[in-house]
């Protein structure tokens, strides 16, 4: 096929070439979402769904699950922030301090993604449990007498395991952004009197805003939507919203409420992402003169 053939085909041909992408987008993303939006306004009678247009389901989300939703968003926010801070310093060290070991460190980061998600959860179970490495170690050292109970089956355990799993998803986009930060801009800032924190705050972070936002979005959305980690490690105090959505869909067979919950989580997550992205975007603003 030569260039002339393409241009002669004109608009029709171009639309035709777009078709697979449009089909995937519509069929796999838009349709299910639209379906969820529609049935979130339906009603459930015994084990059947009745088409309707009522807000009962959303009311139930607020009344029954409002606190869980807020808790889930807070937990995901904490997890994403830990990942962002930790991931930034790791990526920063890889970019500017590790020299020729930098590439190896990134490869190792990628390798941890092959470890599998459930494996990591079980690993944390054996590390944090009352018979786990941490507790037996601390007892052996004589620092504590009885196992620390809040280490497992608690929000702490969920945050630790999620942060561990999500860290690579933050490191990679942040590192990619950092590669575009020229070292001479850092030297110039130091030359003008900036200490290490000022260099990071005023010179490095503003230049990697897209990477920070991408990393945060990955970590936050995956954490907010997760229901396996809290199931295994959260106990009763660390239950997350996703677990209740799963129950509504499976055990209770209440799809309308499940759909309303899913959409509520989606919208509230987007709101958090929007606010945090805006805050990260404001990093650009330096003290004006």
């Amino acid at each position: 096929m030569n260039i002339r053939a393409i241009s002669q085909g004109g608009d029709l041909r171009r639309l035709f070439l777009l078709l697979p992408a449009v089909a995937i987008f519509a069929g796999l993303f838009l349709m299910p979402l639209a379906f969820f939006v529609v049935i979130s306004f339906w009603q459930k009678k015994s084990f059947a769904m009745l088409p309707a247009f009522v807000f009962d389901n959303y009311l139930r989300v607020v009344e029954n699950y409002g606190d869980v939703l807020l808790f889930t968003l807070a937990l995901a926010l904490v997890t994403a922030m830990i990942c962002l801070i930790w991931g930034f310093f790791f990526a920063y060290a890889v970019r500017f301090r590790a020299g020729r070991f930098g590439d190896a460190l990134i490869v190792i980061t990628l390798l941890t993604l092959f470890g599998g998600y459930l494996v990591k959860i079980y690993a944390w179970k054996s590390i944090l449990g009352s018979e786990g490495i941490v507790n037996t170690g601390l007892i052996w050292l004589g620092l504590i007498d009885a196992p620390i109970t809040f280490l497992i089956y608690s929000p702490v355990a969920v945050v630790i395991a999620l942060a561990n799993f999500l860290l690579p998803f933050v490191i990679l986009p942040v590192y990619a952004s950092l590669r575009n930060v020229r070292e001479v801009t850092i030297e110039a800032a130091r030359d003008l009197g900036a200490g290490p924190w000022t260099v990071i705050r005023a010179i490095v972070l503003p230049q990697i805003r897209p990477g920070l936002i991408a990393g945060f979005v990955f970590a936050f959305l995956m954490a907010a939507g997760d229901y396996v980690t809290p199931m295994f490690l959260g106990g009763t105090s660390g239950s997350m919203f996703g677990q209740f959505i799963a129950i509504e869909f499976s055990t209770r067979f209440n799809w309308p409420v499940g759909a309303a919950m899913s959409l509520s989580l989606l919208l509230s997550s987007l709101a958090v992402v929007g606010v945090v992205s805006w805050l990260i975007g404001r990093l650009r603003h330096v003290r004006g003169v």
């Binding site: 020229r182 030297e187 030359d191 900036a194």
Partner: peptide, 20 residues
Amino acid sequence: GPEKRPTNMVFQGYGLFPHM
């Protein structure tokens, strides 16, 4: 360190802050 010296440098490749 350079941040405390009474010198300033014009760098090869300038090192301007691209976000400012």
